[in-house]
Design a protein around this nucleic acid. Structure first.
Lengths: 194, 194
DNA sequence: TTCAAAGTGGACTGTGCAGTCCAAAATGCC
DNA sequence: GGCATTTTGGACTGCACAGTCCACTTTGAA
C-alpha cells in the first residue's frame, strides 16, 4: 500500500472523481462498483488495490473529495468576508452554485445515507462544517464586531443547509435564496449582541 | 384488491408502523423485507398481499404515514399561530420533538434517498411541505399583516429544514434552536414588507 | 352451514453486486 | 539488463435480499 507511483496516483484520482460524479448524478444507492469500473475505465482489481477495504473505503475518499470541493468553490470570497460587497459576492456564488447543480447535491446524498452509519465519514462531514462555520464567523467579526459571531454563523450555515435540503426535496431554489439573503440582511441591520 | 376486513386493515397498519420505526432507526438502506417481517410478526406473503408492488409500494405508504405524523406532532399550535405565545409554544414543540428524536429523522432519510428516485414519494413530501408552509404563512398573516407572509414562511420552513439536516449531520441541536428562534425574533421585530 | 374471498405461513428462486483470486503486464531502482 | 514491486485484467464466488408460489386457515355474508 505504501508507495504510489505517479501512474498509480493518477488512477486513484480518476477513480475518486469518477465515482464522485456518478454518486452526485444517481445517488449513492444506485451506483455499484461495476458502474464505477465502467465509468473510469478500470478493473475490479484496481478498485480494491487502491481501496483495500472496498466500497466503504472508497466512499470515504469520495466524501473527503466532495467536502473539500464545497469549500473551494466558495473561494476566494469565503475566506475574505471583510466587507458587505464581499458578503454579497459570496452569497451570489453560493446561490449560483446550488442553482447550477440543482438536485445533485453531493453532501445531502452522503450525509443522509452515510453520515449516521460510518463514523469516519461523519468526521469528514462535521470537520468540513466546522471549518465552514469558522470562515463565516471570522467574516461576521470583520463586519460586525459587536455581534455574537458564533451564533450568527450557526444561523447562516443552518440557512444554507436548509436551502440545500429544500432544493433537493422540492427542486425550488427560493428557500436558499430567501434564507441566506434574509440572514445576511438581518446581520446587516444589527445582529444580536452577546 | 379493495375490501379490507378490520383484521386486514390492522395488519396493514402494523406493517406500516413497524417499517416506519425500523427505517427511522436504521435508515432505509439498512432495512430489508425480512427485517420488517420479523419486526411486525408477519410473513412474506402478507407483505406482498398488502403492498402488491413490493418494497417501493410499502415505502410510499411509510412516507405518507411519516409525513402526516410530522404535521400532527406540531398541533394544535401549528394551525393556530395567532399570538406570539402560540408561536413560542410551537417553536418549543418543534425543538423538543427534534431534540427527542435526535438523528432519527424520518424525513431526512426518505427525502435524500427516495425523493429524487420516486416521483410518487416526491409528491408526498412536497405536498407535506406545501401544507406546512401554508399553516405558517397563515400564522404570519395573523400576527404581522404587513409582512410578506409567503417569504417569511419560506424562511421559517428553510430554517427548520436546515436545523434538522444539521442535527442529522452533526448531532447538534443548536442549528435548529438558533435558526428558528432568530427567524421568529426577526419577524417579531418587524418583517420585510411586500 | 356453507363457501368464496381475505388472510397467512414459509419454502423456493433469481439476480445484482461486493468482494476474491491469480496470472500477466508495466514500472522503477540497482 | 535484471529483479522486485506496483499496476492491471477479468473470471469466479458467495450472499443478501426482493419477489414468487402454493398450500393452508380464518372470516363473514347469505
Amino acid at each position: 500500500m505504501r508507495a504510489l507511483t505517479p501512474k498509480g496516483a493518477a488512477t486513484r484520482q480518476r477513480i475518486v472523481e469518477g465515482a464522485a460524479k456518478l454518486i452526485r448524478d444517481h445517488g449513492p444507492a444506485n451506483v455499484g462498483l461495476d458502474d464505477i469500473r465502467a465509468a473510469t475505465a478500470t478493473s475490479k482489481s484496481q478498485l480494491f488495490h487502491y481501496f483495500p477495504d472496498g466500497k466503504a473505503d472508497m466512499l470515504l475518499a469520495v466524501a473527503a473529495h466532495e467536502a473539500e470541493l464545497v469549500l473551494e468553490e466558495q473561494q476566494p470570497y469565503l475566506s475574505d468576508l471583510t466587507s458587505w460587497a464581499q458578503w454579497e459576492a459570496w452569497r451570489d456564488r453560493v446561490i449560483a452554485r446550488y442553482a447550477a447543480q440543482r438536485r445533485r447535491c453531493p453532501l445531502s446524498a452522503l450525509t443522509a445515507q452515510l453520515g449516521l452509519a460510518d463514523p469516519a465519514v461523519e468526521k469528514i462531514i462535521t470537520g468540513m462544517y466546522t471549518r465552514w462555520q469558522r470562515y463565516v464567523a471570522d467574516g461576521v467579526r470583520a463586519v460586525r464586531p459587536d455581534a455574537d459571531a458564533e451564533r450568527v454563523a450557526t444561523q447562516l450555515i443552518g440557512a444554507i443547509a436548509g436551502g440545500a435540503t429544500m432544493l433537493v426535496a422540492t427542486d425550488d431554489i427560493r428557500y436558499l435564496e430567501i434564507g441566506l439573503t434574509e440572514a445576511i440582511e438581518n446581520l446587516r441591520r444589527g445582529a444580536p449582541g452577546p
